[in-house]
Design a protein around this nucleic acid. Structure first.
Lengths: 154, 154
DNA sequence: TATTGTTATACTCTATAACTATA
DNA sequence: TATAGTTATAGAGTATAACAATA
């Protein structure tokens, strides 16, 4: 069907833009991840924050904010909740007492692994439909497109 | 830098998932599109709705809701605003009087073209950083990933 | 009984503003 | 003067629930 998608609707100018396609995928992933994460009772950004803390022990909240493109006020809420639940420790950095030095607890490590297992299950249909190489290409192109927007071309 | 991105932070498990990467790109595009669309004074979904109506004259609001993955209550608000501004006409379908038959006005056609020109300018850095083929691949893979989530594997 | 459109309401995500402490 | 963290507030985007009209 020329110019039409599965519903029989033509996309017109819509089919040529990155934004609308990305919005569709993002919305679908968001609602499914929210369901999958419901039993953890955590903010939606908590798993990403924990993954970064795990990979960068001693990092500060401002580092998370930059990496996740979230306002620092959002990161405060996420990290405070994680600390309250015993998944993350916050200690003042001795070298720069403005910064909170973050680390995962043992239980935090268990929880972040469980969350990423749940996330992998949500994305399983994508892995089934795309080859391993296509999936890697998807992630790479999405990250390059993001970088192109954020960093002005050299 | 092995396992680290431009900020020098390691992504850990984060780098292997589609969701977080898509979220970053989507957020960045959303805020830039919102700025670019501000002068039109329309809902963010208005340009997509108009593009679909242009490509599918006579379609109904429920068709837009399905195609854009928006609740019908959201589409009502968008279309009502577009009608009030003289960009879209709503007429009861004679064959099924539950449905609103939608069409773009002349001015609506001008506006949707202007909005997509603005959207193209927002996405220009992506087009500069990716080859034409890579950009087409990006859109295609994103749409396939979305389809894989929505439609259960055959 | 199911679908279309409508209205009112509420929730999630994220940002802004103002502040304190530290550099 | 700038950065890190905190708190309170506000906005955008989207969904849910209930309803009338029509199929």
């Amino acid at each position: 069907m020329e110019g039409a998608d599965d519903d029989g609707m033509r996309l017109g100018q819509l089919g040529e833009r990155v934004g609308p396609a990305v919005r569709l995928l993002r919305n679908e992933l968001t609602s499914r991840i929210a369901q999958a994460y419901a039993r953890f009772g955590l903010h939606s950004g908590a798993s990403s924050a924990m993954a970064l803390i795990e990979a960068n022990p001693g990092c500060a909240q401002a580092d998370l904010a930059r990496e996740l493109a979230l306002d620092k006020s959002v990161v405060v809420v996420i990290v405070a909740d994680l600390e309250g639940k015993g998944f993350v420790t916050r200690t003042r950095s001795p070298t720069d007492r403005r910064r909170n030095s973050l680390a995962l607890t043992e239980e935090g490590r268990r929880v972040v692994t469980a969350m990423f297992t749940a996330a992998a299950a949500v994305e399983q249909p994508i892995e089934a439909a795309l080859s391993a190489e296509e999936r890697a290409t998807l992630i790479r192109l999405v990250r390059r497109a993001h970088a192109a927007l954020v960093e002005p071309a050299p």
